[in-house]
């Protein structure tokens, strides 16, 4: 474990807590892409099945359970409890165009052709693009509430910090995982324009307005 991964995991935890709390407190999921949340729930449930087979550490187990529980709870709030506030009209990204390539790529490029390894690889590929429906929705509505942009900043920072973690592990522990690294770079790259807008606008108290 290293500082980059710890801060990255905490940033990730912060992001999903910010989102769950925002929906719960405002009793509304306006501006939130339910499709992205479904993809994230799928990412965690497919990646963390090894909860039942391998024990890494208490930290690892607790965090996996939290990620699965919070992502499913968020989907429940969006699609069940506060369904009336779900913005169907702007959450229109075709997620089959993300799921199919992730499945195909996981079957073609993986470390080991076993059930759990294919699921893990699918989860890594899917996570790299899972935020697209949310970014697409923000671009369609042309703006995002500041709490949503804090959520996106924390979520984007987590994988950016993981890149530093992978560099650290490559040099200090002499191990690396190319699938996770390439997917992590793609995932972080997708946030770049958002990071720019967040730093130049939101941190100066302005609303996040995207050029529609």
């Amino acid at each position: 474990m290293n500082i980059f991964r710890i801060i990255g995991d905490l940033s990730h935890l912060l992001a999903i807590i910010i989102l769950l709390r925002k929906i719960w407190k405002t009793r509304s999921c306006a501006g939130i892409s339910g499709k992205s949340q479904i993809l994230f729930a799928l990412v965690y449930t497919t990646r963390y099945l090894d909860l039942v087979t391998t024990y890494v550490s208490l930290y690892n187990t607790v965090m996996k359970i939290i990620f699965i529980a919070v992502s499913i709870a968020t989907c429940y709030l969006i699609y069940m409890k506060f369904k009336a506030t779900y913005d169907h009209n702007h959450d229109t990204f075709r997620i089959e165009f993300l799921l199919a390539p992730a499945v195909i790529l996981a079957l073609l490029i993986n470390h080991d052709f076993t059930f759990l390894e294919i699921l893990w690889t699918f989860s890594i590929y899917l996570e790299s693009v899972a935020i697209l429906p949310q970014l697409f929705m923000v671009s369609k509505t042309g703006e995002a509430e500041s709490i949503t942009s804090h959520y996106l900043f924390a979520l984007g920072s987590y994988r950016a910090l993981y890149i530093l973690n992978w560099i650290y592990r490559y040099h200090n522990e002499e191990i690396y995982d190319l699938i996770a690294i390439v997917a992590g770079i793609v995932q972080t790259a997708l946030y770049c324009d958002f990071f720019y807008l967040y730093i130049t606008k939101v941190l100066r108290g302005k609303k996040l307005q995207l050029p529609a």
Partner: peptide
């Protein structure tokens, strides 16, 4: 450097 086998990351 070797390829990481066990997925010990989240």
């Amino acid at each position: 450097p070797v390829h990481e086998q066990d997925h010990d990351e989240l």
